[in-house]
Design a binder for these strands. Structure first.
Lengths: 218, 218, 218, 218
DNA sequence: AATGAATGAGGATTCATTCAT
DNA sequence: CATGAATGAATCCTCATTCAT
C-alpha cells in the first residue's frame, strides 16, 4: 500500500476530506503507472493493489479507466497553463531583461515538470487511448498558443525581429522545451550526457541561450 | 483489401518475390495502423483484414505482434541513420557554407520523414510496448549521437564556439528537429498554423535559421 | 427523489409510521422499476436514488433484493385473491344473471389490475429470479384455482354444461383474463388497436361476451 | 458436452457445414438455458461448457450475448409466422368447415410450440434484456396481426358476425392460444390438471370449442 | 503458403451486500 | 435510522496465438 505522494488537484480548501484524499491517492498512483508502464499496460488491479483497496473501490471514485486518464490530463493541464500564464511578458525592456524573463519562465516550467514528472511523461509521450491522445494534443496546442502570444507581444514591443513566422517560432520554441524536458526527466538520452544531472535553473540557462542566440550564440 | 503503398524495407534485390511483397504489404499496413491508432489499439485481425488474408497467414510472415513492431523500427532506423550519415561534415568552411550544409541535411531528413511519416510517428510518439519503446529510444539516441559528432567536428574545426555543453547542444538540436517533424506531419499543431503546408525545403530553411541564430537571429 | 404514489400493502392501521411510509415508498419504486425494466436490470442503487436515500438505508428495510421482490408478490397476491374471492358465485340464477355476475367480477379484477399495473406486470411477465418466478407461478395457480371452483359451482348448479374438462375451462378463462390485462395495460399490443383506451367496464363486457359465447356469439 | 438436438435455423441446403453445425449447437444450448433459467442467469461460460468448447469460441459465432438472444427470437419468429401463414383462410365455407380449419391451424401451432418449447418459453415469458423484450413483443404483435387478418377475412365472408371489435377478438384469441401453450408446456399449471398430458390435437379440439362457442358452448 | 476455427488467459466493469461512523 | 465508502465475486468480452486441414 502506497502513500499519497503527488497531489494532483488544486486543493485550496484546507479540509481535504477522506474522500478527496483517497481520490488523490488513486490519481497519483495511476499517473505514475501510466507514465512508467503505459496506459494499456496498467491494470486497474495494479492501481488498487498499490492503494491497498478493493477493485470495486476504484469505481466509487472514477467512472472508468479512461475517465481517470482524462482527469489526470485535465488537472495537469490547468496547472501547467497557470505556470505559463504567470510568465507572460507585459512591458518592453532591454534584451537582457527579456532573456532574464524568459529564463525565469523556463525555470518555472522545468520545475513544474520536475514536480509533475509523471504527468509530464504522460502528456509528452502518452496517448494510447484515443480520447487521452486528443486531450494531450489539446494541452500541447494550448501551450504552444501561450508561447505564440508571448512572442507576438515581444515582437510588437520591438524586442524581437518580425522577420520570422510567428507560428513557426512558437513551434520551434515549444519543440525545444518539450524535447529538453523529455530528455532531462525521462530520456531518450545519451548515456554519457550529464543533462539529467542539471538543475531546473541550469537547464533554463542553457535553453534560453540557445533560444535567443542559436548554436552560434555567445 | 489494401494495396501495398509504402515500401518499408530496403529492397536492393530486383526480384521481389511474392513472399516479399506480402511481407512488405503487412509491414506497411501495420506501421500505418500503429501510427494512426497506436500499437495496442491495432489488432492482428485489423491488419490481416486490411491485407485481405486470413488470421493465420500473419504468423507465417512474423513471429508475433511484437516482432512486426520491432521490424518496423529496425528497418526505419537503418534508413534514417543512412540519411543522416550522408550529411556528415568533413571539412572546414565559412559560416554560410556550414549553414547551407546543415540546411541540406535537414531537408534530407524532413524528406525522409515525409516519405516515411508512419514510421516517423511511431518512432516519435509510439512506445506502448516495452521492447518497442526501447528500440525507439535507441534509435533516437543514435540520431542524437550522430548530431553530437557533427557538432563536435564543427567545433574542432573552429566553426562553432566551444562554450556550450556538446550533449546539451545536440539535445536541443534534435529536440528542434523532432518537434518540427512531429508538428509538420502529425500534430499537435495549432489550427491556424500553416506549418503543415510548408515544403521540406522551406521547413529546413526556417529551422536552420533558428538553429544557428535563435529568436534574435537575422 | 420520488414521492410514494402507489401504496402496495394493505395498510389498515391508521397511524402509518414514518418507517412504514419509507418502506412503502421503496416498495412502490421497486415494483415500478422491476416492471418497467426487469428485475435484473433494476439496481438497488437505482431504487435508493429514486427514493433519495443512501444505499445502506435499503438494507434497513429489506433483507435483500430478493426479499423485496417476494414481498411485492406476496402483498399483491393477497389483495388480488381478495378481489376474486368477493366475486364468488353462491346461488343459482339465470344465464343473464350469471353473465352479469361474471362481468362484475372481471370489472373488479381489471380495476385492481389498473390500480396495480406494475404489480400485475411483474406477476404476468416477470420471473427472472427463481424464487420470484415460483411465487408468481403460485399466485397465478391460485387465481386459476379460484376460477376453477367458480366454474365447478356453476356447473353443479346446472348453469354451465358439464361436457368440458374443468381444468381446461379454467385454464382457458384465466388465459383470456391474463392476456387481456397484459394487452390492455402493458402490451404486446397492435399499434392500431384501441384496446388500451377501453375502460375496465367496457373491457369486462367484451371479455365476458367471448367467455360465454365465443367468436360465434351474439 | 451436449449434442445438437434442436435445429433452429431453416436449413434447406443439405450440406450443413461444420461451421453451421457448431452455430446451431450453440443456439440450441442457449435457447434451452435462456428458457430454463432466464437470460441473465445464463452465463456464456455455461453455454460453452455445455458445447464443450472454449469461451472465445462463442464469440467466433456470435457478436455478443445479446446477439444470440436476438438471433433466437428472429429465427423462431420466421418459422412461427410461416406456420400461421399456412393456416390462412381463403374461401368461404360452413361453420363446421371453419371450425375444422381453425382446429387444424391450432394443432399446427401447438405442434410447433411443442417442437420449439424453449423458443416458445423465451417468447412468452422471456425478455429481460431490453432489445430481446422488444423483439419478443414484435413477434407476438405479428402473431396477433396474422390472426386479426384471418378473423377479418372470415367476417367479410360472412362466416363470423361483425358485431365485435376485430382487434379485441384477435387479442382474445391470441390470449387464449398463448395462455394454453404456456400452461401446456411450462406452467403455471394447477398440479391436478391433466392439461399437460394432452396431445397437440386434443388441445386444439378443446381450445377451438371454446374459441367459437365459449363456456356455454356445446 | 494459406485458411479460419479454436483457444484461454486476462482485464474492465458491475452490483448486491456489509459496516464503521 | 441513516450514511456512503468499501468489498470482491461474478461475468462479459478481447485478442494474440496455435493448429488441423
Amino acid at each position: 500500500m502506497k502513500e499519497c505522494v503527488f497531489v494532483i488537484t488544486n486543493d485550496n480548501d484546507k479540509s481535504a476530506s477522506k474522500r478527496d484524499l483517497r481520490r488523490e491517492q488513486l490519481l497519483a498512483i495511476a499517473v505514475e503507472r501510466f507514465a512508467k508502464h503505459g496506459y494499456h499496460n496498467t491494470k486497474i488491479s495494479d492501481i488498487v493493489a498499490d492503494a491497498g483497496v478493493a477493485q470495486g473501490t476504484f469505481y466509487w471514485y472514477f467512472k472508468s479507466k479512461e475517465a481517470i486518464g482524462l482527469e489526470i490530463i485535465r488537472s495537469g493541464r490547468e496547472r501547467l497553463l497557470q505556470v505559463i500564464a504567470k510568465g507572460y511578458r507585459s512591458q518592453s525592456g532591454s534584451v537582457s531583461e527579456m532573456v532574464e524573463g524568459s529564463q525565469r519562465l523556463l525555470k518555472d516550467i522545468f520545475q513544474f515538470a520536475d514536480e509533475n514528472r509523471y504527468f509530464m511523461e504522460l502528456l509528452l509521450t502518452g496517448g494510447e487511448d484515443e480520447s487521452i491522445r486528443r486531450a494531450s494534443k489539446e494541452t500541447r496546442i494550448d501551450m504552444e498558443e501561450a508561447f505564440r502570444r508571448n512572442i507576438e507581444r515581444a515582437t510588437e514591443l520591438g524586442m524581437l525581429p518580425g522577420s520570422m513566422n510567428l507560428h513557426m517560432r512558437a513551434a520551434l520554441l515549444v519543440s525545444l522545451i518539450e524535447g529538453v524536458i523529455a530528455r532531462w526527466l525521462f530520456g531518450p538520452i545519451h548515456p554519457n550526457s550529464d543533462l539529467a544531472r542539471l538543475t531546473a535553473e541550469e537547464l533554463a540557462a542553457e535553453t534560453v541561450r540557445f533560444e535567443f542566440f542559436g548554436l552560434l550564440g555567445i
